[in-house]
Simulated scan of single mutants.
Amino acid sequence: MQVIRHNSERGQWEMAFAPPHPRLAGLVDTYIAYDERNTAFTRRHELPGLNAVMIVNLGDPITIVDTAGFVIPVGTGCGFAAGLSDAYAISESGGSQRGLQVMFTPQGARRFFRLPMQDLTNRVFLLSDLLGPAAALRLIEGLQAANDWETCFAWLDAAIAAHVASREAVDLAGIRNAGWALRQIAGRHGDVSIAALAGEVGCSRKHLAVLFREHVGLSPGTVAGLLRFRHALELIDEAQIDAVPAKWTDVALAAGYYDQAHFNRDFRRLTGCTPGDYLAARLQGQVGLPVG
């Protein structure tokens, strides 16, 4: 388990990151626990990526505005989940919050929630609506009873494994094919011919798009664009670690954008700000981007 603690004029927070149990490989990428107190920021842009998320709020009430524009109040002891999105969402708090976050792979979310991933795209839903009130309550009460983050992570391991095992198998062949194609796109940072990829899967480009809607939630082309964006963020982070000012044209070309104008348009759409504003706002350990 990796723990990051921060204490400054911008607030105090603790973030804990842990991998899932090996039996959940391919279903869950990581767990995140967070405890924030008196932060100077109350609004964040939650940036899009290739994980579906499930969050249980163990602290003060928060509000989520999903990518589609729906407002979802999340009270203490409530949970919610979101599929993949093609732009940022917004989270709002009173300056303090505490909870657990599961970073599902799209295939893991498909099996856990047993919904076509396109039904979750750009949306946020309460766990009681997705899992049913009884199942959501059991999951949340187990986390509320835990005394530390490690116990919370162990409970999530057990609860997710049991929930997946208790349900009939969905289209496992479709999940495997979509997952393989997704890994190919990810391994190339989105720099891939979708037509060629469909040929590698052994299907038409149209059928690959159907597979992705069902088991990922976004089209292969949109996924490739998100991977290009996430690669740009990695390059920016690496430049900051090396104390080298990011050169936006170099970042854009290295990440696979046509030019800096293409990069700037994509960056603003996906983050809600310019690359320079992103650099000024980002904070250590924060999953979202503080904006207000």
Rank of each mutant, 00 (worst) to 15 (best):
V53N: 01
T105G: 08
Y88M: 01
P48D: 04
Q118H: 13
F104V: 02
F113G: 02
P61W: 05
A81V: 04
F70W: 09
S128H: 14
G108V: 04
T121C: 15
D60V: 04
R110Y: 13
S91N: 05
G77D: 05
Q107N: 11
S96V: 07
V65M: 11
G99C: 09
V71P: 05
F125A: 14
R43W: 08
H45W: 06
V53F: 01
R43F: 06
R110W: 10
A40K: 14
L120N: 06
A87S: 14
M54D: 00
A52Q: 04
L127P: 05
G79P: 00
A52C: 15
I62A: 03
R123C: 12
A87Q: 10
P106H: 12
P106L: 13
M54G: 00
R123G: 10
V124I: 14
G69R: 12
H45R: 11
H45Q: 05
S93H: 10
Q107Y: 04
Y88D: 01
Q97S: 13
N51C: 06
D60P: 02
V56C: 09
P106E: 11
F112D: 01
G83V: 00
I64Q: 11
L115W: 02
G77F: 03
L47S: 04
G59Y: 08
L100E: 05
N51I: 00
P106D: 13
F113C: 01
I90Y: 07
V74P: 06
G79T: 04
A109G: 10
F113D: 02
R123N: 12
C78W: 03
M54N: 00
M117K: 07
L84S: 02
P73S: 06
R110F: 11
L127Y: 07
P116G: 08
G83H: 01
S91T: 11
S96T: 13
S128E: 15
V124N: 12
R44N: 07
P116V: 09
D86L: 08
I90K: 09
I72G: 02
P106W: 12
D66A: 12
G59A: 07
F70Q: 14
Q107L: 12
V102M: 02
A40L: 14
I72A: 05
F125S: 14
L50G: 02
F70R: 14
C78R: 11
N57P: 07
